[in-house]
Amino acid sequence: MTQRAQRRVTKTAAMTAQTVVDGSAARAVRPEPVAASELPELDSRQRVTLSLVPRINETNKRSMLVMVIALVVVAFSVIVTLVLMNTSVAQRQYDIVSLRNQERVLSQENQALLKEAQSLSAPQALAKKAKALGLVAPGAPGLVDLNDNSITKSADKAVEAEGNSANYATLPLPGQSIREKAKADTKKSESKAPVPTVGNASKDDAKPATDSADSKNSTKSVVKDESATRKIADDGRPVFKDSELNGGTIPAPMIKSPTN
């Protein structure tokens, strides 16, 4: 204990004590108070007595206040910064979510437009439009030999409208179901050629164009007949024959013979 007191005294020099202790016994006299600044040097073995602390002057007081205010401001600004940062991070997260949504909406819009453009520019759609505009397939192109500036072959005239062998717009359009297409074609063919027979097409070689039309009609009307004869029951379901239902079981897959 004494060691420590001594060390403290030598260090600060502002604190001291009077000789109030003699060995382990306290003296009877009450020491006179002494200003802390005027404390005399001490014997090392003496105990530190209480002393008056010099009054803090005004300037010290003010700097203390400034210090406190500064600290408060710093603390406050730290808190505010943290809160702001937190908010901005949170806000960013919301922004990301909303941008993601926006991206999705835009990409969906893009998808839809792209798909529409592609469907409109599909070859069969273009062919149909061209046909509607009265365009026909070209004849063979003319040829010019650039070496001797001669026309090696003159161009053929395109065959007009109905006679043109290249009958465009026969394939179903994008988005048009094959079934619907077949149905629509059958209706058309029914009105034109009522009962063409299957397979008569190839017999007459002289008129391949009309034959092809006939056989086309005939195959389609066969398809149509099948669907037309299907009766619809009261519950809106088509009526199947027992043989068609195969006893209620699904037939096993058949092995496809390569030569069949």
């Binding site: 070859p123 069969q124 009958n167 465009y168 026969t170 394939l171 097409a201 391949p208 056989s215 086309k216």
Partner: peptide, 16 residues
């Protein structure tokens, strides 16, 4: 491919 498909379909119908 469109031309090939169209011609194939046409031929299929012509000769069934």
């Amino acid at each position: 491919n469109y031309v090939a498909q169209r011609e194939a379909e046409k031929k299929q119908k012509q000769f069934n």
